[in-house]
Design a protein around this nucleic acid. Structure first.
Lengths: 206, 206
DNA sequence: AAAGTGTTGTGACGTTTGTCATGCGCCACG
DNA sequence: CGTGGCGCATGACAAACGTCACAACACTTT
């Protein structure tokens, strides 16, 4: 035959300008076609079920449902589509969670646009496409030491909520909330709750 | 003549993938050409002096020098280039500062990619190109009520630094730092320092 | 069955934070 | 030339925060 079938791609990215630009560029590739686009994880999940694309390219930080949750949901439902995470953040914790969720690729938005098409081809061919520098960094990276509760509470504390507010919201006593925060601060080697939240965020644990 | 001269554009954006994608798309336009690209404000400033582009498209949040500082520096040096701010953030404070710095356009990354070329044409023709929804919102927006000192201190506090640390860093007494924070908290109607920093950030005051 | 881990709670203690009153020097604006 | 705004400071008090010890219960792992 003259031309092989094009690789059918679903593109999930909340920033319209980037999504549109990448989609147009990918369409210029002879062996790739963008069959669907989504602006959040939930929409993407629906479209993935409907179209069963060969490859899914998804951002992480999106409204409604993050790309990591989306990837996990796909794995759960035994989707055949292969997932590439495309994100701004070189956080070891993100990469780890992405791979746990079955992602085959992890690409940074700081890389040239040409690498995206290349990654799509690699992943479609059954290979992996993980940013090498990040992979190396993530290798020696610490595990997330936080428990679920600690994470919940740290999120809210980093947002400016007081112990009392957090306690009410989560139906806990105020002392308990302070205990968790104290634990989290110690585990992260932070100086206080805000510092702890900042540290957890930069490592992709929050 | 057969073809008019193309509009010469400088593109400043730190995210390589977006910069590359937009640049390629703009090159597809018959009346636009991207003569230079920069990954931060300082680089952009150098290139603007060197190439004197017709239109400059710049992100705000970049390393070394922000797009707003860059625009202000251009205004200072009587540059003939017209500036379009291209950013993720629909913060009234950013728009205000952008216009103060002489920007002719303010476009959100949430808009379709096609609008960028349109904005470039409008601005090159001497018109303005400001996101209408944002302009309306910014109209009734409050001025930044913070003094320089309050801003400095609030930034650091929002980052998890203690009053004592901030005092040392800025050569102030600890009491003074607490006073400024108290003032800022009151002005912003916040519950505490972290809440205040969050509020100031979302309004583009930080 | 024992050990470990996570969740939740209490009480007590010292530190940090937020508020308020008050004061002084400086500079710009009318 | 005063008046007000800003920067900076001190002292004092109440509230919030961070730490520690200790304890109970559920659940998993060994």
């Amino acid at each position: 035959m003259a031309t092989a079938k094009r690789i059918r791609v679903l593109l999930a990215e909340d920033q319209t300008m980037l999504r549109g630009a990448l989609s147009q560029l990918l369409e210029l590739e002879p062996d790739i076609t963008v069959i669907a686009q989504a602006a959040n994880g939930r929409e993407a999940h629906r479209m993935a079920r409907e179209h069963a694309p060969d490859v899914i390219v998804t951002d992480i930080e999106m409204p409604e449902m993050t790309g990591l949750e989306f990837a996990a949901a796909l794995k759960e439902s035994d989707s055949k589509s292969r997932v590439i995470i495309l994100t701004t953040f070189a956080r070891p914790g993100y990469l780890r969670r992405a791979l746990d969720a079955g992602a085959r690729g992890y690409l940074l938005k700081e890389r040239p646009a040409s690498e995206l098409a290349e990654a799509i081809r690699r992943v479609h061919a059954g290979l992996r496409a993980v940013d090498p520098a990040l992979a190396a960094e993530a290798w020696g990276a610490d595990e997330d030491p936080l428990t679920d509760r600690e994470r919940q509470i740290l999120q809210r504390a980093g947002d400016g909520r007081s112990s009392a507010e957090i306690a009410t919201e989560l139906r806990l006593s105020e002392g308990t909330v302070r205990n968790y925060l104290s634990e989290a601060i110690a585990k992260l080697g932070a100086a206080n709750r805000v510092d702890a939240a900042r540290i957890a965020r930069t490592r992709g644990w929050l």
